[in-house]
């Protein structure tokens, strides 16, 4: 009996969906626009996050050691710094490596290369390049280097002070961008929910006389509600699948630009989508089912009292 009723409800849902094709198309268009807006914001947030990570990865603290300091002393400092849990890595650059890097970097500047040739000794120092997980932790590294007397005697200079202002600004921008990104996503989601709720309300309103007829020939509330809820699930399913298709298309087209924009990172929008496809569209589908079923049930309630 339950199976019979369920099969009828599914059949009626499919019939309503097909026989009211224009209303279905309009509703699905709204669903697709809504989901695509949300998907776009998710992608923009992902790209922004990558961009921020890229800039953050460029920030480090360079510790220049005095010429008299031995390699063992430097390695001891390196080991101690690496032991800090907020330090991501500590790279040792010997003064000869530093000189080589300088030569490579200024390969196209004959003036600098000539100047370097004229020097008898390597003017550069052995260096430790310290990177932390979070940019806010750089100050902690500086504080430790300053507060530890046995380090202070070894270190000639630290360049973090120059970057400190940039890092602070970057942190502020990153926090603002993330905050604004989520605020825009939430704002758009609320608008999208209101649009969907209203679209479904109008769809139900157009069928109000049909609902009263069903009730008058003895249909239970569940029997009336079932096909409308089924239709709402169809809208969500078809809308999500179309959005998925469009998103793949847009991602394919825009991926070269994103890869170019983020250059040195290993980020690809297409790969990001492939890795998160179930997550993103699963949540969108479930959310859309929840919103459409909820608004269908609410919109129906007033017409079921016949």
């Amino acid at each position: 009996m339950l199976f019979l009723s369920l099969s009828r409800v599914i059949r009626f849902s499919a019939q309503n969906f097909a026989r009211n094709i224009w209303l279905s198309i309009v509703t699905i268009t709204i669903v697709v626009l809504t989901l695509f807006s949300v998907t776009t914001l998710v992608f923009v947030n992902a790209v922004m996050e990558q961009a921020i990570q890229l800039v953050e990865s460029k920030v480090d603290v360079s510790v220049y050691f005095k010429p008299t300091v031995t390699a063992e002393q430097i390695f001891a400092v390196q080991t101690n710094l690496e032991a800090l849990d907020y330090v991501r890595d500590v790279e040792y650059v010997s003064k000869s490596q530093a000189l080589e890097k300088l030569r490579v970097r200024y390969n196209n500047s004959p003036l600098i290369l000539e100047s370097l040739k004229e020097l008898n000794d390597n003017p550069l120092n052995d260096t430790l390049i310290v990177r932390t997980h979070d940019t806010s932790d750089y100050q902690k590294v500086i504080d430790i280097l300053n507060a530890t007397p046995q380090y202070a005697v070894l270190i000639e200079n630290k360049n973090f002070d120059d970057n400190q202002a940039v890092v602070r600004r970057l942190e502020r921008i990153a926090a603002e961008v993330t905050g604004v990104g989520w605020a825009v996503t939430i704002f758009f989601s609320i608008i999208a929910i209101l649009v969907i709720v209203n679209t479904i309300r109008i769809a139900i309103y157009t069928h109000r006389s049909e609902i009263s007829i069903m009730k008058l020939v003895g249909a239970s509330n569940w029997f009336v509600r079932g096909p409308f809820i089924g239709e709402a699930i169809f809208y969500a399913l078809v809308g999500t699948l179309i959005t998925l298709g469009i998103s793949y298309l847009v991602t394919n087209v825009s991926d070269p630009f994103v890869v170019n924009l983020l250059g040195q990172t290993d980020f690809s929008l297409l790969r990001y989508m492939n890795q998160n496809v179930v997550h993103i569209f699963g949540i969108e589908f479930i959310g859309m089912v929840f919103v459409s079923v909820f608004s269908t049930s609410i919109a129906l309630t007033r017409y079921l009292r016949v």
Binding site: R8, R19, I213, M214, L216, G218, A219
Partner: peptide, 26 residues
């Protein structure tokens, strides 16, 4: 019940309209 304004389901065929009264009753 027979109404003045017929009250037939517009999205269903004549067969389906009659069948509907039986379908709701299981």
């Amino acid at each position: 019940v027979v109404f003045q304004d017929f009250k037939l389901l517009p999205r269903k065929t004549l067969y389906e309209n009659v069948a509907f009264a039986l379908e709701v009753a299981g």
